[in-house]
Structure formats: C-alpha cells, structure tokens
Design a protein around this nucleic acid. Sequence first.
DNA 1: ACCCCGTGC
DNA 2: GAAATGCACGGGGTT
Length: 468
Amino acid sequence: MGHGGKKSAQITWSEVEADAAGECACAHVDAIWRLRQVFEPELVEKGMEELFRDEEMPLVTTLAHMELHGLAVDTGTLHEMAAVMATDIANLEEDVYKSVGHEFNIGSPQQLSQILFEEIGLPKTRRLKTGAFATDKDSLDALRGVHPIVDLIFEYRELAKLKSTYLDPLPSLVNARTGRIHTEYNQAGAATGRLSSHNPNVQNIPVRGEAGARVRRAFVGRDNGPDPQLLSADYSQIELRIMAHITGDPGLVSAFENDEDIHAATASEVFGVPIDEVSPEMRRRAKVFNFGVLYGLSEYGLSVKEKIPREDAATFIRTYFEKYPGIQEYVSETVSSVRMNGYVQTLFGRRRYIPEIHSGNFNVRNAAERAAINMPVQGTAADIIKIAMNGLDERLTSNGMRSWMILQVHDELIFECPGEELEDVRKLCLDIMPASLEMKVPLKIDTKVGRNWGEMQYGEAVDLAAYG
DNA sequence: ACCCCGTGC
DNA sequence: GAAATGCACGGGGTT
C-alpha cells in the first residue's frame, strides 16, 4: 500500500476539491484498465497469472487491513527512554572529548577517522573511497583493547543509533486520530518478492542488546495492560527448509524430518562428531556456513569473517559441499540457469531478471551470481508467508474474530488479540501457515505471546491461566 | 545525491 | 586478477 516513495511534497486527498478528485480517480481507473491490456498477456505468457491473481491481488486487501488497523506504541516509555539516553550520550561525548583533548563530531566518519588514525595513531584500517579509514563495526572491533576510546565509540554509536532512528521519530509517527502507528508496506519493493516497510520501517526494530530490547518493549497491545495481547508466529528456519526442499539433499532433509537442531546437525556432519558432542563453538561455526551458503559466501569472505587462514576456509567449504552435495548442485545449476535464461524464479513462478549476470565487470558478475543463488530461496519464503497472510486475514474476518494481524517481519507475523482469542489465533496460525506449500520437509511454526513485543514467551510453555 | 554506518530478517 | 554474503530502510555527514 501507499506509493512506496520515501517522501513527497504533495497535498493530501482531503485538500482536493471533490470534483477534481473524482476526475483524477477516473483517470487512474482508465489508465489502470489500459495497463491491464498490456500486462495481462505478459503475465499469462510467463506463467505468472496465478501468482498475480491468487497471491498478490488478495494481499492488497490483507495489507490494507494491517495498515489501517495499525499498532499501539507506548509513547510515554519512548520519551522517557529518549531523555535518559540523551544524558547517557552527552556523558559519553564528554568522555570521548576528554580522551582526545578536544571536541569534534563523533558522528562524522571522516572526522573520526582523522582522530583515531592520524591524531591518536591507532593501527590503520582499510581505506574508503573518500580517502578516510574505515570506522565501521568490524574494523573497530579489531582495535578493542588498544585504546579506551574504542569502547566509548561503540557505546556512543549504539545509543545514538537507537535514539535518532527509533526513539525520536516513532512518537511523531503516531496518527493523531487513531493514536497508533500505521506503517506502509511496499508490496513490490524488494527484488526477491519480500515486502518492505516504511513510515516507520517496522521490519528493523531492534531486538538484540539490552537497549535495543527496551525499544521493542514500547510496542504494546491495545490496552497496554498486564495481560498478554500480542501473539507472534514465526517460521522456524524457513530458508534452510526451502533449501532442503528445492535440493532434496538427503542430509538436510533428514535433519529437518527428525526435527534436529539444524546448525548442530551441520556441525556434526562437517566436524565429524556425534551430534551430542557438538561444542557451542562448532555449532556457531556451522551456523555461519548455513547462512553463508544462502548468500553465496566465498572462501575469502569466510576466512575474514571467521579469522581463519584461507586454506582452512576452503577446506570447510569443500567439506560442507561434500556433506550436502545437493546444495552444491543447486548452486551450480542456478548459476548456469540464470546465464541461460536471464532470470531465476521461486517455486511459485515469481521471477527476478538479473541482466548483470552477463556483465563484463568481474565484481558485478559475481554479485549477480550470489543474488541468483539467494533469490529462489528468499523469494519462495516470501511467497509462503504472503499466501499464509491472505489465508489468515480471510479466516480472521470470516470467523468474526476481534483479533488483528498487525505486523509482518519476513518470517514472522504479529497479532493483536483479546486475551480470550489468543489460543484460537495460535491454532489458526499452526493450521494455516504451514499449508502454503507441500514440502519434502515439515514447515515448523513457533508461537509466542506477551504484553509487548519485547517480552514474548514461547507458546506451549506459557500457562495462559496464569494470566487470569 | 552520495557515502558511511547500522538495524532487521 | 579483480572482490570477497542476500534483501531492505533510515539517520547523519558531506559535497
């Protein structure tokens, strides 16, 4: 919904004369009808009319319901947090200036580079296009412990980011009439078929870290009372399950069929130990492999990220593909297919054209290959949740329920429910969400409930009676 | 308008 | 031999 643009200096419909508005609306309808004459045959020819008719068109209504209903935020909490954070940030700035000997703009990457690497003389990082040295997280991570200013920068950045991106803008996005936040979803914003969200972007609200979790707690149920009113249902490991389904790789499929911890199972395979002897470090590393393969991670990228010799990274990747040969096959077949056809597609026929695959530029071409490898997986996940959203919206409406689907965060749906409907909505989710696609592996749904988005407890474990 | 950086999945 | 993990949005600095 919405026009999806970032910003526009337009007047609103309420300021337009009724006659002029009618004229304009008719012109739109006429234009859309003529566009249909052009695009409908193309959809048919490409085998995408079902995707369009049964998935995307119903989603227009579903998203409209979500946007119009909106969600409640506790603006009091946001304002308090912003005030506390302002003094924390001021104190950190003072500490930084004292450490350097003078004031400067910590938020300016150029000035910060000058201070850290020229004035203080810290070991230089990679050079940016601008000539300055990189001050991003990974670069500064290597300098922790070298000088006390590094930790101060990290603390400053964390708080400044949260305040400027979330705490300060959110209260002003509360609609005066509804008292709620009404994000706009862009249905055709992402090249893979994912949704995007803006005004505000509800798909990148912090979740990690103590300060970040506090921001999430400001997203509350309608009454903002002690009783849980929010229900979250998310697809567990949906992209790796799709990878298992597409590739049919026996190791991956059997891990999911047996409901194993997938990263532990991968660690067990790659490191050659029984699954109950997998150490936390081995599991963490296997998780990097599993996510890396979805994005086309290279041996160089792995060696940098894991701080291991390139040869070791190469060995890991080779072993990984030996254990999951179906994945290796998928990667090479996808790349040759995109070269041949010029596009890749999801299991529902959604296409992404990638002309850069023929680029003469090595970098551009490699990036195109990685995008091609990722799209069918990420895009099929997007199709699956979109179809589920339509089913859920339809059922919530036809059942006459008072619960609302209010948020989508790629693999997660959030509902605002009267307490007595929580259990019914959970059952609807468990019923509908896995049903979008018949797969070689189960689609698993985890559910949580809570009084706000930051304090959610896993479904089965929660005794709803305890909440009265 | 672009760059850098950081948040989410 | 290059560059080196996919998809978004937003704040703030700089030009």
